[in-house]
Design a protein around this nucleic acid. Structure first.
Length: 835
RNA sequence: GCGGACGUGGCGGAAUGGUAGACGCCGGGGACUUAAAAUCCCCUGCCAUUCGGGGCGUGCGGGUUCGAGUCCCGCCGUCCGUACCA
């Protein structure tokens, strides 16, 4: 045996062995229990980064462990390959988005392979290939047929220079992020998916997901934003009506004004012949939408002079304002104000000297006069409200809704924050929407036997706009219904559609349909899904919706695609700044005892915050040279060490060095195996405790704890005298570390004469008898302070433990002759003497 | 503002209400070596110490308990999400 583990040789050899044996190809027909382990598939941006390495290492440990515990594991990998960066690259470097993307995939696939991930590459998919997006087009048509897709005019952010639609995130201070041009609101006909039809289901469903982080569940709940209340009409003094929505119908008798949004029809119609109203509306539109601005922005109102009649008291009139804080796209775009019990209304009423009337008791305060400095929104009894007096808030709500419905002036309603999902994108590098627009037939779905609608290759990116739209022939087709000349839809689908069903395609990929129902159902739901928390809302909500929509149309009998979700932390690194404020990369600086200096200039470098690795801050560390230097196992081990997986992990030179040292320590143990006799009961126990503990930790994804336990076992083995027990411990250790450091484990397994590949070996069995000690250390406290410890046989009777504790020399001294007043004995743990 | 998470040595972090600081990193001392690297051994929360042991310690202030890092109440701070949601 070699004296040192050489990852350069071993990594490649074992990766080849796994490939040659198709070790990680999942078998649909396996009789074993199935386990679907999935990490969010990457966007092929060019190179793997440390975030990928951490994410895929975690999933890999779980996948390998599941295999060892007798599961048939599906652990696939693919590419979320459509999207803007490819088009940007096309514009900047004159490369076709397809060749750019495919080259990136090739690079990144090779990089992933070097990390030795137990991936089923036979199921690799790239969303930019027709044999993926063609099936997506079929699903789109199915949803269209089922009425879950519709077309609607909708306002978008339009960049007039790049001639493209921008996502909200791409609009910075009202300007396009690339062109810098002022962004316009433009109305376009767009395709929408009816996610709102599933709002209730999605809300109920997310609450039932036991193995999701509460944080993500809460974010989704807030995003869906269910509000139950009353929608009702006010009659107006100008003969019209205004519809408002409230979640607090119980406070009807506390209202003192009605307010409508600046773009509400009432405001708009007043503006046509009233310059004052026009000016006010203009003023509302100014003012930013950033957090800071909104917080400080004043509540502004304009009294229209119109009066609204209170629906429960015809003699009561309320002024109608136009107000800057009312949003047209939520509820009805109009509200009624109850200043005493809503903070926003309170501020408005204070400013415009409107009545503030208490209608909910606050402790003993029940008088209508309200003297607080802020609105009271807590619980209480309804007061000063005629027939509602004495009811609690919930009952009063029900009563008002009942009367509104009986009287025909309002209805109990649920309002959602969630909007339907607009999926049209005016871009080239996406799934073509399989629709043909015909002058006489309207939009017609492309017949399924003509799918896929393939992106044309001969496109140019030298001028702005959508290359599909200006392609000379691509959009010219005949209507599939009537045969007359028609126009192909030139919009493509939002890339979030691509990632909304890829897990189904991983589970089953027949050529003639998107997936086979029965086969996919064997694998789904994904048992453990792992990815970044940045996808907590959009991707995870869209994928959940898409699965439910497919269930709705009978394509699959699964409601929730991801049974378990884990959101891992980021990989971070120190940042460095030069004297003149430039970001510096780790390679550009040198650290010494005095601090850090810039190598090129010798100038002092400022150490910045520890931040997520990003190109803009130049604090990235490319994984590939690190793998070259230390091998895959050390990199994997470091990714699992120290930081709890949900928290950020700081990349450090010392950390990877430590991981490298550990890999070599393992090798010395494996390599130094020699015949020895005799039993070492302590080591036996420690081994079995470690097997059980590491198993538990991997199941719970608390890899940092598993790592600590493995260090402890390794320390113990190193210190132990030669014995048969020690040899067993070393042989067993190989299997226990195998999911984390698979290459060295295979090498050791082979050299120890293990059968087959360790990737196929079973997880070592735990002997329950060895999990319990015969002796325990019992802490002895006096008045809660530790004074001594006793070693006692496990399960020693209470009185015996108490006697031993009271007899101990240190305890006698600590008691200073005082008689114990009380003695608490916790079996096998501690004795506390109260003196 | 609202919602959430978190706050433990020089650092990353362990700890079913029961011996706080496991494990790793950094640091110090020693062994091996001509020397270095590698490796191995010892020390390493703070304070004072007669070297037996002692006092103080989990953001701050209270409380519950025989016993609180852990539970409860009130503050302070950091990070994340969200944005006038009626």
């Amino acid at each position: 045996m070699a004296s040192r583990f050489n990852p350069l040789k071993a990594d490649a050899a074992w990766q080849k062995a796994w490939d040659d044996n198709r070790t990680f190809a999942a078998r649909d027909d396996s009789p074993k229990p199935k386990s679907f382990v999935l990490e969010m598939f990457p966007y092929p941006s060019g190179r793997i980064h440390m975030g990928h390495v951490r994410n895929y290492t975690m999933g890999d440990v779980l996948a390998r462990y599941r295999r060892m515990t007798g599961h048939e594991v599906l652990h696939p990998m693919g590419w979320d390959a459509f999207g803007m960066p490819a088009e940007n690259a096309a514009m900047e470097r004159k490369v076709h988005p397809g060749s750019w993307t495919r080259a990136n995939i090739a690079t990144m696939k090779a990089q992933l392979k070097r990390l030795g991930f137990a991936l089923d590459w036979t199921r690799e998919i790239a969303t930019c290939e027709p044999d993926y997006y063609g099936h997506e087009q079929a699903l789109f048509l199915d949803l269209l047929e089922a009425g879950l897709v519709y077309r609607k005019e909708s306002a978008v952010n339009w960049d007039p220079v790049d001639m493209t639609v921008l996502a909200n995130e791409q609009v910075i201070d009202g300007r396009g992020w690339r062109s810098g041009a002022l962004v316009e609101r433009k109305k376009l006909s767009q395709w929408f998916l009816k996610i709102t039809q599933f709002a209730d289901e999605l809300l109920d469903g997310v609450r039932g997901l036991e193995h999701w982080p509460d944080k993500v569940k809460l974010m989704q709940e807030n995003w869906i934003g269910k509000s139950e209340g009353l929608q009702f009409r006010f009659k107006l003094s100008d003969g019209g009506e205004v519809e408002v929505f409230t979640t607090r119908p119980d406070t009807m008798f506390g209202s003192s004004f009605v307010a409508v949004a600046a773009d509400h029809p009432i405001a708009q119609s007043l503006a046509t012949d009233n310059p004052e109203v026009q000016a006010f509306i203009e003023r509302c539109k100014q003012g930013g939408t950033t957090a800071a601005e909104l917080e400080t922005q004043e509540k502004l109102g304009f009294d229209t002079g119109i009066r609204a009649t209170h629906p429960l008291d015809a003699s009561w009139e309320l002024p109608v304002y136009i107000a800057n804080f009312v949003l047209m796209d939520y509820g009805t775009g109009a509200v009624f104000g109850v200043p005493a019990h809503d903070q926003r209304d309170f501020e408005f009423a204070t400013k415009y000297q409107l009545p503030i009337r208490r209608v909910v008791s606050e402790g003993s305060q029940t008088a209508p006069e309200f003297h607080g400095t802020e609105a009271y929104t807590g619980p209480g009894t309804i007061v000063n409200s005629h027939f509602l007096d004495g009811l609690d808030i919930a009952d009063a709500k029900r009563e008002v809704i009942r009367r509104a419905e009986a009287g025909g002036w309002g209805t109990g309603t649920t309002v959602w924050r969630l909007r339907d999902w607009g999926v049209s994108r005016q871009r080239y590098w996406g799934t073509p929407i399989p629709i043909i627009h015909c002058e006489s037939c309207g939009p017609v779905g492309v017949p399924k036997d003509q799918l896929p609608v393939v992106l044309p290759e001969d496109v140019s990116f030298d001028i702005p706009g959508n290359p599909l739209d200006r392609h000379p022939t691509w959009k010219q087709v005949d209507c599939p219904k009537c045969g007359s000349p028609a126009r192909r839809e030139t919009d493509t689908l939002d890339t979030f559609v691509d990632s909304s069903w890829y897990f189904l395609r991983f589970a089953s990929q027949p050529s003639d349909q998107p997936f086979d129902k029965a086969v996919a159902e064997q694998w789904l739901p994904v048992g453990q899904y792992i990815g970044g928390v940045e996808h907590a809302i959009l991707h995870l909500l869209y994928a959940r919706f898409f699965t439910r929509a497919l269930q709705h149309i009978g394509k699959i009998d699964v409601a929730e695609p991801f049974a378990g979700l884990f959101t891992q932390g980021m990989v971070t690194h120190e940042t460095y700044k030069s004297l003149d404020g430039r970001w510096l990369s780790p390679e550009e600086i040198r650290k010494d005892s005095a601090g850090a200096v810039e190598i090129a200039s010798g100038d002092i470098v400022t150490l910045g915050r520890i931040e997520k690795m990003s190109k803009s801050k130049k604090n990235t560390v490319d994984p590939e040279p690190i793998v070259d230097q230390y091998g895959a196992d050390a990199v994997r081990w470091f990714m699992l060490s120290d930081s709890p997986p949900e928290r950020d992990l700081e990349w450090s030179e010392n950390g990877i060095e430590g991981a490298w040292r550990f890999v070599q320590r393992l090798w010395r143990l494996f390599d130094g195996l020699e015949d020895a006799q005799g039993e070492d009961k302590d080591l036996d126990r420690r081994l079995h405790r470690t097997i059980a503990g590491v198993a538990e930790d991997i199941d719970a994804l608390t890899f940092n704890k598993a790592v600590a336990k493995l260090y402890e076992l390794t320390n113990a083995i190193e210190r132990a005298q030669p014995s048969a027990s020690r040899n067993t411990a070393i042989r067993t250790l190989v299997r226990v570390v195998a999911p984390m450091v698979p290459h060295i484990a295979e090498q050791a397994w082979a050299e120890m004469g293990g059968e087959g590949l360790i990737a196929d070996a079973p997880w070592p069995e735990v002997d329950p008898a060895l999990l319990v000690d015969d002796e325990v250390t019992i802490a002895v406290q006096v008045n809660g302070k530790l004074r001594d410890t006793l070693v006692m046989p496990k399960g020693a009777p209470k009185d015996q433990v108490e006697a031993a504790a009271l007899g101990a020399e240190k305890i006698v001294r600590a008691l200073e002759g005082n008689a114990p007043r009380k003695v608490i004995v916790v079996p096998d743990r501690l004795v506390n003497i109260v003196a």
